[in-house]
């Protein structure tokens, strides 16, 4: 490996061997063990690695919270999908609520366009009903 390429790789991946690309690791190791200038380059890269390693974050255990959000059935999966976890996903519940509404409006419009009301008054039947009431004897007599 050329020293120039060695330095390029150090600049990118730092001085820790485990971070070096697997395909170059052996060649890099061979170069820096036999070259004091390369060893100094590795040492300088490691100083920055150590500094970067001082930035640690606390990763809480979210396992249960995540598992609770999923359900075993297909329907459960659908409801889990509906719940937005980031603001950009509010379209999911919004669409779910809007769809039945739009469907109702569409059905209403299509029913109204099918023609006039089909209510038919059966006058003969009404007349018979009235006559039967007037022919009855009053209950209080």
């Amino acid at each position: 490996m050329e020293p120039e390429r060695f330095r390029e790789l150090l600049d990118a991946y730092g001085g820790e061997e485990q971070r070096w690309p697997a395909e170059h690791r052996q060649a890099m190791r061979a170069l820096y063990t036999g070259d004091s200038g390369a060893r100094a380059d590795v040492q300088r890269a490691r100083e920055l690695d150590l500094l970067l390693d001082s930035y640690r974050v606390k990763a809480p255990d979210l396992t249960q919270r995540i598992i609770d959000r999923v359900a075993p059935t297909g329907l459960g999966r659908f409801f889990a999908w509906l719940q937005p976890t980031v603001p950009a996903q509010w379209w999911r519940p919004a669409t779910a609520f809007a769809l039945p509404l739009l469907l109702g409006v569409a059905l209403g419009l299509s029913d109204g366009s099918s023609g006039a009301s089909t209510t038919v008054i059966d006058w003969e039947l009404q007349e018979q009903a009235l006559l039967s009431v007037t022919n009855e004897e009053p209950w209080y007599e």
């Binding site: 974050v57 255990d61 396992t63 598992i67 059935t73």
Partner: peptide, 22 residues
Amino acid sequence: GDRAAFAVLVGQHQRALTNYTR
């Protein structure tokens, strides 16, 4: 739809992903 399998993989990868996103 195997929740137990899901739980194993969440346990396996969750901390690494949290480190990344944080």
